[in-house]
Simulated scan of single mutants.
Amino acid sequence: MAREIEVKITHADFAYEELIVAISSRYELNFATQVDEIFAATPIDVLNPTAGTVICRTRTVGDEAPILTVKRRRSHNLDRDEEEVKVESVQAITRVLALMGFGHVAQISKRRAWTRLTDELTICIDSVDDLGVFVEIEALIQSTSSGGYSASEIQQALRLVDPRLADLIYRPGYSIVEKGYDTLLLEMNNS
């Protein structure tokens, strides 16, 4: 089982294309349009997760087989244990999840560009429908590890790997978003 810790950064001046050009000048980027379907026992589990809360996500990328990701919250909203498996179809897994008490709570559509900076660090540039542009830095570690990364440790790790990239992302006026896209969409739709 893997443990994923994310840091999401946004800025009023972030432009998807600008970030793509800046990062692709130093790294080879992968591109995809992703559609995520989010399933939970209740929307509250997404809006106000507690330790141990389980959320399921199906991700569809083009013609590829969908992937089911089961996420169990650890210490904060973006610190989770994860398991992934390819599934036959979103419709089939939706029926299975319904039998387990999970209902569909959100759909997230995004354009994503990403690259792996190190074995543990991946950077993603996301343009999320209805939400805007974000930079997501993911630290993927083995769940058996007692350590992890905090948001500031991820920022420091990025600064060690690529100081110019860190300066581009952590420019004056940036904000760290401590919620997932699913939570942000549900909050926006409930306001």
Rank of each mutant, 00 (worst) to 15 (best):
H11F: 09
I125V: 01
P49D: 09
R95Y: 14
Y181P: 00
L184A: 12
G62D: 04
A151G: 04
R116V: 00
T60E: 10
E6L: 02
G132T: 05
P43Y: 15
N77I: 07
M100Y: 11
E83H: 15
E84C: 04
G52S: 07
A41C: 10
Q107I: 10
S127M: 10
S143F: 08
A157Y: 08
I108T: 03
N48H: 12
Y16D: 07
E84I: 03
A22H: 04
A51N: 08
P49V: 05
L168Y: 05
P172A: 15
D130W: 14
I93V: 07
N30H: 13
S145V: 03
E136T: 00
T94D: 11
P66L: 07
V90W: 15
G52L: 05
R159S: 03
D126A: 15
N190P: 02
R159L: 01
T144H: 13
V21C: 03
L168D: 02
D81R: 05
K86R: 14
L78E: 01
E84R: 11
P163K: 03
G103A: 08
H76A: 06
I23T: 07
E37T: 13
D36M: 00
A98V: 02
E88W: 15
W114T: 00
L47V: 04
Q142T: 03
K86P: 11
A2E: 05
A15P: 03
F31K: 07
V133R: 06
V85S: 08
V96T: 14
S150M: 10
D13T: 09
L121S: 08
Y149C: 02
A151P: 03
R59Y: 13
K8D: 01
G147H: 12
I9P: 08
R72D: 05
R57N: 07
T50S: 11
A106C: 15
G103H: 09
T60R: 11
T10A: 12
S25D: 04
G103T: 12
T94Y: 14
N189C: 05
Q91T: 13
S127W: 10
A2S: 06
Q155F: 06
F134N: 04
I9D: 08
E136S: 00
A12W: 13
Y149R: 10
Q107M: 12
A40T: 04
I5A: 01
E17Q: 13
P43E: 15
L185Q: 01
E178L: 05
S109G: 09
R57M: 05
D126E: 11
S127D: 14
L29F: 09
R59C: 04
F39T: 05
T115Y: 06
Q107K: 14
E6D: 06
I5L: 02
E6Y: 06
R72M: 06
R95V: 11
T50L: 14
E187Q: 13
Q107V: 12
K86F: 15
N189E: 12
R116M: 08
H76T: 07
A98H: 15
A166E: 05
A15E: 08
K86G: 10
E120F: 00
E120A: 01
I44S: 13
D167K: 03
V135L: 09
I93S: 05
V21N: 08
E187C: 07
I38D: 06
I176V: 09
R111L: 12
Y174G: 02
R171N: 09
